[in-house]
């Protein structure tokens, strides 16, 4: 390198450093294994053993399972029924179930069809729809056609039956004050008996069936 008058830094000790070969102290290995053990213990207690569905503070899938709401029961069905009603029925019958005189959609509130002792007629109605007029609480309503909403629900027979049962439960509970759950099995049997029918029902057809 060129002689630089400012080069005053000493390059005296330019021997690179070396390392001694003294063996490691044993205590540090002992500490490491102790901490590893404690870490493994901690993981066992809180790690959920790599389960994707286990989040703190739950410690395992079984633990999460203990806090799942009971499936079934009327509250469950009502919740589903409310959603299905809002998606499929409220457009004509209104969210409050009062119906729509402009379209001829009859009310569901206090309707004798809703309050009938068994849900059979309701299930038939929902499944295949209605053609022509219908008398509700003394007044005649004619919207022309109620579509076969139940038949056109997505899913296989079992799922359709569950959904129709949920709608029936909700409608009877909300608008008819009948707090009895319509079971999917009921809906399935009834739908089985009318499965070959392609046309909508009429009021006369429904009146032939046991209320």
């Amino acid at each position: 390198m060129n002689a630089d008058p400012k080069q005053s830094c000493s390059v005296a000790s330019e021997a690179e450093p070396t390392a001694t070969m003294t063996p490691m102290p044993v205590w540090i290995l002992g500490l490491m294994f102790t901490l590893l053990f404690l870490g493994a213990w901690y993981f066992d207690l809180y790690g959920g053993w790599f389960e994707a569905k286990v989040y703190a503070p739950y410690s395992s899938v079984a633990d999460v399972q203990r806090f799942q709401p009971k499936k079934g029961g009327i509250a469950d069905t009502l919740a589903r029924g409310r959603k299905l009603y809002a998606d499929n029925c409220a457009v004509c019958h209104m969210e409050t179930g009062v119906g729509n005189p402009a379209n001829g959609c009859p009310p569901l509130v206090d309707s004798e069809w809703v309050k009938s002792p068994s849900p059979t007629r309701m299930i038939m109605l929902i499944s295949k729809g209605l053609a022509g007029p219908i008398t509700v609480n003394g007044k005649v309503w004619n919207s022309g056609v109620m579509l076969a909403v139940g038949d056109s629900l997505p899913g296989d027979e079992k799922e359709k039956a569950e959904k129709i049962a949920a709608i029936a439960t909700y409608v009877r509970f909300q608008f008819g004050k009948i707090e009895v759950e319509t079971k999917p099995a009921q809906a399935l049997t009834i739908r089985e008996s009318i499965k070959d029918r392609t046309a909508n029902f009429t009021e006369a057809d429904l009146l032939k069936v046991e209320p």
């Binding site: 390392a19 001694t20 070969m21 003294t22 063996p23 490691m24 540090i28």
Partner: peptide, 9 residues
Amino acid sequence: ERPLQSHYL
């Protein structure tokens, strides 16, 4: 100006 203590550590 001392060696590193130690290689194994």
